[in-house]
C-alpha cells in the first residue's frame, strides 16, 4: 500500500515536472525571426544577430545546455573571479559551516542556561526578542565596519542568523523535559553535569535538532544574499557575476544548484533528527 502510494507520488512528480518544462518551452518559443527589417548587415552584426545571441527569456533547451556546460567541469579555476560552480559551492558551504558551528557553540550552552533557570529566561528574554527579528543582512554594514573583513563579516552574519532558532529551541526543549525524569535523577542523587548530559540532553535532543535544522535552512538562504552583496567567492557571487552579464540561463542554473544544495542540507539534518528521536 505504502509502496504503491510513493510510486504514484513519484509518477505525479515526474508528470508535473514534464508539464512545467512543456509550458516553459511553449512560452519561450522564438518569435518569427523573419520580421527583422532589412537593416544593414554591419548594424545587425553589432547588435549580435547571428552570433548565437539568445533573445528573450531562455528556453529549456538553452538552460539544459548551460547545466551540461557547467556540470561537465565543476572545478575549473580561471583566476580569482572565474571559478567552477563546485568550488563556489564549497566556499559557501565553508562559510555557512564556520558560522553555524560558532552559533552552535554559543547557542547550545546559552540555551541550556536559559532553559534551566527561570530567572535567566526572564532576564534575557527582552534582548532575544529584540535581536531575533532583525534581518541578518541588516547587520552587514555594521559588521563590515567593525570587523574590517568581508569574509569574517559573512561568517558573522551566518552566526547571528543561525543563533536564534537554535537558542530558543534549546531553551524550550530543556525547559520542557518531563519533571518525572528530573525528579528520578534527583532521587538517584545524580550530579548536575551528569544530569545535564545523561538526562536533559537526550530528552531535549529532538527539539534542539529541530532548531538546528531551521537554523541551517536560514543560514543557506542568507549566505547567498550576503555573497551577492560582498562578492569575491561563493555561489552568491556566482549569481551576481552572471547577473552582471545578464546571462539568465546561468542564473537559472545557479538558482537550481542553490535549491539542490539546500535540500541536501535539510535532508542531512532530517536524518540526524530521526536518529535522536525517541518514543515516550
Amino acid at each position: 500500500m505504502s509502496t504503491n502510494l510513493s510510486f504514484r507520488a513519484a509518477l505525479l512528480s515526474v508528470l508535473l515536472f514534464a508539464c512545467f518544462i512543456g509550458i516553459w518551452h511553449l512560452a519561450t518559443l522564438p518569435a518569427d525571426g523573419g520580421a527583422v527589417s532589412a537593416a544593414d548587415a554591419e548594424y545587425a552584426a553589432l547588435m549580435g544577430q547571428g552570433a548565437g545571441k539568445a533573445e528573450g527569456f531562455p528556453t529549456p533547451a538553452a538552460v539544459g545546455r548551460t547545466f551540461v556546460h557547467f556540470l561537465s567541469d565543476p572545478f575549473y579555476d580561471n583566476g580569482p573571479n572565474d571559478k567552477g560552480i563546485g568550488i563556489q559551492i564549497a566556499y559557501s558551504l565553508l562559510r555557512v559551516g564556520a558560522g553555524f558551528l560558532l552559533a552552535t557553540l554559543v547557542a547550545l550552552p546559552l540555551g541550556f542556561l536559559i532553559g534551566m533557570s527561570p530567572l535567566m529566561t526572564r532576564a534575557l528574554n527582552p534582548f532575544i526578542q529584540v535581536l531575533k527579528p532583525i534581518s541578518p543582512l541588516a547587520w552587514m554594514p555594521l559588521a563590515l565596519y567593525v570587523l574590517k573583513d568581508s569574509d569574517v563579516s559573512g561568517i558573522f552574519v551566518i552566526f547571528i542568523c543561525s543563533m536564534w532558532p537554535m537558542l530558543l529551541n534549546t531553551a524550550f526543549g530543556v525547559a520542557s523535559v518531563r519533571r518525572d525524569w528530573i525528579n528520578v535523577a534527583r532521587t538517584l542523587e545524580v550530579g548536575p553535569v551528569r544530569k545535564a548530559f545523561r538526562v536533559i540532553l537526550p530528552a531535549a535532543a529532538p527539539t534542539i535538532l529541530t532548531g538546528m535544522r531551521i537554523s541551517m535552512g536560514i543560514a543557506w538562504i542568507v549566505i547567498v544574499a550576503a555573497e551577492m552583496l560582498v562578492g569575491g567567492t561563493g555561489v552568491g557571487y556566482f549569481v551576481w557575476n552572471e547577473w552582471n552579464n545578464l546571462a539568465l540561463p546561468n542564473v537559472i542554473f545557479a538558482i537550481t544548484m542553490i535549491g539542490l544544495v539546500g535540500m541536501l542540507l535539510d535532508f542531512a539534518f532530517g536524518v540526524l533528527q530521526k536518529m535522536v528521536t525517541y518514543r515516550d
Binding site: 580569482p80 573571479n81 574590517k148 568581508s150 560582498v230 562578492g231 569575491g232
Partner: peptide, 20 residues
Amino acid sequence: VTLQKTAGWAIVRDKVLAKE
C-alpha cells in the same frame, strides 16, 4: 597582484578602508 572583482562602489570604499 590578485585582481578582485567587486559588486559596487560602496563595497570598494569599505574594502579599501578595511585594508582588504
